[in-house]
Structures are given as C-alpha cells and as structure tokens.
Amino acid sequence: MSLWEYANPVKFLGLSERVMPWLWGFAAACLGVGLIWGFFFTPDDFRQGSTVKIIYLHVPAAFMAIQAWFMMLVVSLIWIIRRHHVSALAAKAAAPVGVVMTLIALVTGAIWGQPMWGTWWAWDPRLTSFLILFLFYLGYIALWEAIEDPDTAADLTSILCLVGTVFAVLSRYAVNFWNQGLHQGASLSLDKEENVADVFYIPLLVCMAGFVLLFLALVFYRTGTEIRVRRTRALIAREGRGAAAQVEGA
C-alpha cells in the first residue's frame, strides 16, 4: 500500500467517495459549532468591542488562502516530477477555493479595519500581500482556462505556480520593506500570545479546523469533478475523433 496508489484516477474517486461524507460532515459540524460559539457565546474585547467576532472568519480564511496556494505548489511539483494527472487536477480544483478564501480574508479585513483603523483599506503590508496573492490566483486560473490541451495547461500552470511562489514571497518582503503597516503581528501562534485569551482562542481553533475540513472536502469534490471531465473527454474522443475538444464545462 503506497500513497501513490491514489494517484490513479479511479482509485482516487473510490477513496474520495469513502472519505467525502466524513469530510463534509465534520466540516459542517466544526464550522457550525465554531461560528455559533464565536458569534453568540464569546465576550466582546475590551478594546475592539464586538468586532473581535470577525476573527473567527478572518483568521481561518487568511490561513487557508496561504495554505491553498502552498498545497497547489506541492501538487504542482508532484505533477512536474511524477506526472500524476490527479495531482495536476487537484491544483486546478484548489485554485478557485483559494480565491474565495483570499476574498473572505480581504473583505472581512476591510470591514474590520473600518471601525478599528477608521479606513476600509490601508496599504498595509499584510493587506497588500493578500491583494497580490489574489492577483496571482486570478492569473493562475486564467491560464488554466486559456489553454485547451489539458497536459500543456497542467505543465504551464505548474511552472507558473512555482515562479509565482518565489515572487509572492519576494513581494511579501518587498511590501514589508515598503510600508511598516498598521496590522497587528500574527495574533495566533502555537504558544498563544497573550493578546488572544482562551475564551477567543478555543472557538477560533474550532473554526480553523472547520475551514481546513471544508477546504479538503471542496478540493476532493472538485478534483473528482475534474477527473470526470477528463474521463468524459476521453470517452468522447474514443467515440469519434475531433469531437474531443468540446466537452461542456471543461
């Protein structure tokens, strides 16, 4: 039993059929519990008032926005090195989810920033970095959409993901240098800085777990969809050559 066995599309579909109900279930449970707990049963922060409740969306979304890109990087590398189709399709499947996470982080950040900093948007390094990450996601998805041949698209987007990662990190340092910023330092780390008290910390962890599970469920489901698109394409190509390119939803 090797992990690579699941690089076979059929095996992967079988695995995801078995795993997905659990993922969806736990994701819904964690998100439900975490968000309700955070929204209804946590006290207001003495400085930030009730806006502190936004943390249960903002921080997990920001976390997942970065993790989604990181996951795309890993599966892109797997595609480049081992040529498993499932991994290329998983990268394609994850990108729109990453976009949504980035968007949530940006929007909740803006809504939070308005009462706290008195402005919807500041060219703060963290906000700016997320905006740049958002642009990278858009470019990545646009490249997937623009290329017809699936293997060519997988190759090109993988290299773009690699190069993009380097430049995203460079940009992060560049904007740090460029503007020192208003944003508080990372308010969440494993050793629990004092500015996040237990009352906030535990529901936040539950929400983080919920976001991770939701992301996994979505990626599994969407990868399955991409595999089915390819299978449909292959079946049609076998049926009559030439009609292959026009698979709806491809």
Binding site: V100, V107, T225
Partner: peptide, 26 residues
C-alpha cells in the same frame, strides 16, 4: 453587538455567502 453591529453582521453575511457560493457552484 453594540455600535459595531453593522460591521460584524456584514462580515458574517459576506463570508457565509461566499462560502455557500463556492460550495453551491462546485
């Protein structure tokens, strides 16, 4: 939610709408 009710509620509304959106689309 005090004076920040608008901010908190809109943040939750937007985020949940986006999450539901991507799930529904998928």
């Amino acid at each position: 939610l005090g004076k920040y009710a608008d901010a908190v509620l809109s943040a939750y509304a937007v985020s949940i709408a986006l999450l539901v959106g991507i799930v529904a689309l998928s």
